[in-house]
Amino acid sequence: MIPAAFPPWTRAETLGASVPEFAAFQDEPPQMSSGTVGKTGFLRLGFERRSGTTILANLERRAPYMVQRALHCDEQMPGLAYVFLITTTGCLLQGDRLALDVTLRPRAQAHITSQSATKIHAMDANYAAQSQTITLADDAYLEFLPDPVIPHRHSRFISDTQISIAPSATLLLSEIIQPGRKHHHPDECFGATVFSISTAAARPDGRPLFAEKLVIEPRRYVMRQTGVMDSFDVFANVILCAPKNKVERIHDRVLADVNRAEGMAFGACRLPNDAGLIFKVLGRETAQVKAKVREFWGVVRKEVVGAELPPPYLWR
């Protein structure tokens, strides 16, 4: 554990220094060293429920991370706080360190998404790192559904998400990973050097629920093989942590299928320790994967809070 007195981005800095897949990328960028101002973004969001509405009660930020304000734009859930994550740089560069801390107090309800896809640029030194901490109190409800991540050719990225969730709370967390700019250049498709994502969850008393780690190293392991990506290009990993009775109802409504003609494969399975479900989607195009994730999101929202999804925005 990192002492609380240390800057929040220190955890993001230590991520790549402590895992073997990043041992070869500890050199510093010649432009700006990692850990300098402008490359260490920090965002702390604290949501509270007041008078039937969730508000953004606590906001701390350091560029390039920022949030402007919480909106209440969902007609199906008028008390839901809707927040867009913004990075003023518009992309991740070598040496960048981002730290996100999200806390929902009892009965708070929030939806967090991003301004656009997260683009990870090509790198010839060091790497980019992201640390996320999510804490949900009793009966809290969080939809964390950012736009896809696009790792460019020769990019290096590590992300770690730590979740603390009360038994009565609900978290829907989605990650959609594209193969790169596959229509830009043939070498862009699965051209990243290393892409590492880990997620772990525990109860507020520290009891562990589950942990998952995904490491993609296209130069070392063939992506076009059965059991990896095969003929698919886009991957979605959706984690649902929710009370057991709601999880069972959701699981009964979620189908599983492999349809090579349409270029889709998807299915859900239970997480250990009655933590919830994990829903995975493979597709050839981003739009079809996002549509399947939206279907799952709609089932979750209906079963957990009894509300429908809002109409999709025209630009999404």
Rank of each mutant, 00 (worst) to 15 (best):
F6W: 12
W9M: 05
T10A: 13
A17G: 14
A17I: 08
F22T: 12
S34L: 02
G35F: 05
G38H: 07
T40H: 01
L43W: 06
R49K: 14
I55M: 05
A63G: 10
Y65H: 12
Q68N: 09
L71N: 08
H72P: 01
E75D: 12
Q76A: 15
M77S: 15
V83Q: 02
F84T: 10
L85T: 04
T87E: 12
T89K: 06
L92D: 05
G95R: 00
R97N: 15
A99D: 04
V102D: 11
V102A: 06
R105K: 15
P106V: 03
A108W: 04
T113W: 05
T113K: 00
S116Y: 03
K119N: 09
A122M: 11
D124R: 15
Y127M: 11
T133S: 11
A137R: 03
D138Y: 06
Y141N: 08
P146H: 05
I150Q: 01
H154T: 08
H154L: 09
R156Q: 08
S174E: 13
H183G: 13
H184E: 13
E188A: 00
G191K: 00
P204S: 02
P204C: 03
G206T: 08
L209M: 08
L214I: 11
V215C: 13
S231N: 09
A236M: 04
L240G: 01
D252Y: 09
A256R: 11
V258N: 08
A261C: 09
A265M: 09
A268R: 01
N273T: 12
I278P: 00
F279H: 06
V281E: 02
V281A: 02
G283Q: 03
R294Q: 09
V305T: 13
G306K: 03
A307M: 07
E308M: 13
L309P: 04
P310D: 08
L314Y: 12
